[in-house]
Protein backbone atom coordinates (compact mmCIF):
# COMPACT_ATOMS: atom_id res chain seq x y z
CA UNK A 1 0.00 0.00 0.00
CA UNK A 2 1.19 3.50 -0.84
CA UNK A 3 -0.43 5.37 2.05
CA UNK A 4 -0.07 5.07 5.82
CA UNK A 5 -1.98 7.24 8.28
CA UNK A 6 -2.58 7.88 11.95
CA UNK A 7 -5.82 9.22 13.37
CA UNK A 8 -6.95 9.58 16.98
CA UNK A 9 -10.45 8.92 18.24
CA UNK A 10 -11.64 12.26 16.84
CA UNK A 11 -11.34 10.62 13.41
CA UNK A 12 -10.49 13.74 11.38
CA UNK A 13 -7.51 12.24 9.55
CA UNK A 14 -9.31 8.92 9.07
CA UNK A 15 -12.22 10.76 7.39
CA UNK A 16 -9.79 12.61 5.13
CA UNK A 17 -7.98 9.41 4.10
CA UNK A 18 -11.24 7.58 3.52
CA UNK A 19 -12.31 10.22 0.98
CA UNK A 20 -9.04 9.86 -0.95
CA UNK A 21 -10.41 6.52 -2.09
CA UNK A 22 -7.07 4.76 -1.99
CA UNK A 23 -6.24 1.86 0.35
CA UNK A 24 -4.18 2.94 3.35
CA UNK A 25 -2.49 1.26 6.32
CA UNK A 26 -3.62 2.58 9.70
CA UNK A 27 -1.02 3.19 12.39
CA UNK A 28 -2.51 2.71 15.86
CA UNK A 29 -1.26 3.31 19.39
CA UNK A 30 -0.60 -0.41 19.75
CA UNK A 31 0.50 -1.29 16.23
CA UNK A 32 3.23 0.25 14.11
CA UNK A 33 3.03 -1.59 10.76
CA UNK A 34 6.35 -2.00 8.91
CA UNK A 35 6.29 -0.44 5.43
CA UNK A 36 8.14 -2.45 2.82
CA UNK A 37 7.49 -0.28 -0.27
CA UNK A 38 7.59 3.48 -0.98
CA UNK A 39 4.71 5.28 0.72
CA UNK A 40 3.32 8.65 1.81
CA UNK A 41 2.48 9.28 5.47
CA UNK A 42 -0.62 11.26 6.52
CA UNK A 43 -0.68 12.46 10.12
CA UNK A 44 -2.47 14.98 12.33
CA UNK A 45 -0.60 17.53 14.49
CA UNK A 46 -0.89 17.77 18.26
CA UNK A 47 1.51 20.59 19.12
CA UNK A 48 1.11 22.78 22.17
CA UNK A 49 1.85 26.51 21.99
CA UNK A 50 5.61 25.82 21.96
CA UNK A 51 5.45 23.07 19.35
CA UNK A 52 5.95 20.24 21.84
CA UNK A 53 4.22 16.99 20.99
CA UNK A 54 3.54 17.99 17.37
CA UNK A 55 4.10 14.47 16.03
CA UNK A 56 1.84 11.89 17.73
CA UNK A 57 3.84 9.26 19.63
CA UNK A 58 2.50 6.30 17.62
CA UNK A 59 3.82 8.04 14.47
CA UNK A 60 7.23 8.50 16.10
CA UNK A 61 7.31 4.78 16.99
CA UNK A 62 6.31 3.95 13.41
CA UNK A 63 9.12 6.10 11.98
CA UNK A 64 11.69 4.73 14.41
CA UNK A 65 11.82 1.61 12.21
CA UNK A 66 14.72 2.25 9.77
CA UNK A 67 13.16 0.06 7.05
CA UNK A 68 9.88 1.98 7.18
CA UNK A 69 11.73 5.29 7.24
CA UNK A 70 13.75 4.36 4.16
CA UNK A 71 10.49 3.91 2.24
CA UNK A 72 8.96 7.23 3.29
CA UNK A 73 8.79 9.57 0.30
CA UNK A 74 6.69 12.40 1.67
CA UNK A 75 4.34 13.55 4.41
CA UNK A 76 0.88 15.14 4.39
CA UNK A 77 -0.10 16.88 7.62
CA UNK A 78 -3.42 17.75 9.19
CA UNK A 79 -3.92 20.61 11.62
CA UNK A 80 -5.81 23.79 12.29
CA UNK A 81 -4.76 27.32 11.36
CA UNK A 82 -6.10 28.45 14.72
CA UNK A 83 -2.84 27.14 16.15
CA UNK A 84 -0.95 29.88 14.33
CA UNK A 85 2.65 29.08 13.56
CA UNK A 86 2.07 25.53 14.77
CA UNK A 87 -0.45 24.82 12.00
CA UNK A 88 0.29 21.29 10.66
CA UNK A 89 3.68 21.45 12.36
CA UNK A 90 3.96 17.64 12.37
CA UNK A 91 4.55 17.87 8.62
CA UNK A 92 7.51 20.22 9.07
CA UNK A 93 9.03 18.15 11.88
CA UNK A 94 8.81 14.88 9.95
CA UNK A 95 10.07 16.53 6.73
CA UNK A 96 13.08 17.83 8.62
CA UNK A 97 13.79 14.65 10.58
CA UNK A 98 13.39 12.30 7.60
CA UNK A 99 14.61 14.53 4.76
CA UNK A 100 11.40 14.22 2.74
CA UNK A 101 9.08 16.95 1.43
CA UNK A 102 5.91 18.05 3.20
CA UNK A 103 3.56 17.46 0.30
CA UNK A 104 0.41 19.14 1.56
CA UNK A 105 -1.32 20.51 4.62
CA UNK A 106 -5.03 20.41 5.38
CA UNK A 107 -7.28 21.48 8.23
CA UNK A 108 -9.25 19.04 10.41
CA UNK A 109 -10.86 16.47 8.06
CA UNK A 110 -10.07 18.48 4.91
CA UNK A 111 -12.45 20.10 2.43
CA UNK A 112 -13.58 18.65 -0.90
CA UNK A 113 -10.94 20.84 -2.56
CA UNK A 114 -8.22 19.41 -0.32
CA UNK A 115 -9.25 15.88 -1.25
CA UNK A 116 -9.12 16.66 -4.98
CA UNK A 117 -5.74 18.41 -4.76
CA UNK A 118 -4.20 15.54 -2.80
CA UNK A 119 -5.66 12.91 -5.15
CA UNK A 120 -4.19 14.76 -8.12
CA UNK A 121 -0.88 15.40 -6.37
CA UNK A 122 -0.50 11.76 -5.38
CA UNK A 123 -1.37 10.66 -8.91
CA UNK A 124 1.38 12.89 -10.34
CA UNK A 125 3.80 11.64 -7.69
CA UNK A 126 3.19 7.96 -8.48
CA UNK A 127 3.40 8.60 -12.24
CA UNK A 128 6.66 10.48 -11.84
CA UNK A 129 8.09 7.60 -9.81
CA UNK A 130 6.95 4.98 -12.32
CA UNK A 131 8.51 7.05 -15.09
CA UNK A 132 11.85 7.52 -13.30
CA UNK A 133 11.97 3.82 -12.42
CA UNK A 134 11.34 2.93 -16.07
CA UNK A 135 14.15 5.25 -17.17
CA UNK A 136 16.49 3.82 -14.57
Amino acid sequence: MRLAFYSTASGNTARFVERLGEPAVRITAGDAPAMTAPFVLITPTYADGEGRGAVPKPVIRFLNDPGTRANLIGVIAGGNRNFGEMFARAGDVIAQKCGVPCLYRFELAGTAGDVTRVQQGLERLWQARTHSNAVA
Partner: peptide
Protein backbone atom coordinates in the same frame (compact mmCIF):
# COMPACT_ATOMS: atom_id res chain seq x y z
CA UNK B 1 -2.39 36.89 10.11
CA UNK B 2 -4.08 33.85 11.61
CA UNK B 3 -1.09 31.55 11.25
CA UNK B 4 2.03 33.72 10.75
CA UNK B 5 4.98 31.96 9.10
CA UNK B 6 2.98 28.78 8.68
CA UNK B 7 3.06 29.14 4.90
CA UNK B 8 6.74 29.91 4.46
CA UNK B 9 7.36 26.27 3.57
CA UNK B 10 5.62 25.70 0.27
CA UNK B 11 3.52 22.60 -0.03
CA UNK B 12 4.80 20.30 -2.74
CA UNK B 13 1.32 19.68 -4.14
CA UNK B 14 0.23 23.33 -4.01
Amino acid sequence: ALSPNADENHDFFS
